[in-house]
């Protein structure tokens, strides 16, 4: 295999369709669950359209559900969204020229589009694959959110369908690659255990916030050399 020839993966039609279906199902599920716990259809539609982060919405709702107050719940939602900040950092070396184009790509940083963009050898290809992936995600998400908003009223008891297991499972799949690395696994297991122990003890919201301690433990236990030669993931 010659390295020059390897231009990076392309989003083919099957990948495009899979992404649309994936984001469609997530959008539907999120809406149905939001409406099931008592959010009005209009509010659920607006929330999922503008926040566009099921992780943050779920972190917020989990804290509220545990009896937490507004700000700890919001803080938990914002902390889990650091994922998107990190994705924006990873995307930096692959950002296109031009202020507006950089801005547009940065605010749309998600797991699938950043993953494909950083694997491209050519900047032009990186931008093209980034936006094709983004288009698939958006198409799936917004149609899913729209359909889910209507289904929410029709479906009834969602726990019967096992929908409450969908989001933890989806998050696990998203984090799969990171949890496969040694440091990622240490951070994940420690963070998860901290949260588990703290749920019955600490005020709602704090278990998620304090799970950040898992990062400290992972860095302390890391066997990676102190100075890596580059910051690329």
């Amino acid at each position: 295999m010659q390295r020059e020839v390897d231009a990076g993966p392309r989003l083919n039609f099957a990948d495009f369709v899979t992404l649309v279906i994936t984001f469609f199902s997530l959008g539907v599920t999120l809406q149905v669950l939001l409406i099931d716990i008592g959010t009005s259809q209009v509010r659920a539609f607006i929330a999922s359209s503008v926040i566009f982060s099921a992780t943050s919405q779920f972190a917020y709702l989990a804290v509220k559900d545990a009896g937490g107050s507004e700000w700890p719940a919001i803080l938990a939602g914002v902390i889990v969204a650091t994922r998107f900040g990190i994705l924006a950092v990873s995307l930096r070396p692959r950002l296109p020229e031009g202020r507006l184009r950089r801005l547009a790509a940065t605010v749309n940083a998600f797991d699938p589009n950043v993953a494909i963009a950083v694997q491209q050898a050519e900047p032009k290809a990186a931008e093209r694959e980034f936006w094709r992936t983004t288009a698939a995600m958006m198409l799936g998400w917004f149609s899913g959110v729209a359909v889910g908003t209507f289904l929410g009223d029709v479906l009834g008891d969602t726990s019967r369908l096992g929908l409450d297991a969908v989001f933890p499972a989806a998050l696990l799949a998203i984090m799969g690659n990171l949890l496969r690395t040694r440091d990622g696994r240490t951070a994940g297991i420690t963070g998860g255990l901290l949260c588990l122990v703290l749920i019955p003890l600490a005020p709602p919201g704090l278990p998620i916030i304090l799970s950040l301690g898992g990062v400290v433990v992972a860095v302390a236990l890391s066997t990676e050399p102190r100075l890596s030669k580059s910051g690329t993931p």
Binding site: R83, L178, A187, I208, V215, A218, V219
Partner: peptide, 25 residues
Amino acid sequence: TRAAKLIPAAVVTAVIVQLTVADGR
């Protein structure tokens, strides 16, 4: 940078735990 890249592993796992085994507190 390495620490920052581990933040999602810790906090998203915490959310997974909360969504999987918590019923209120």
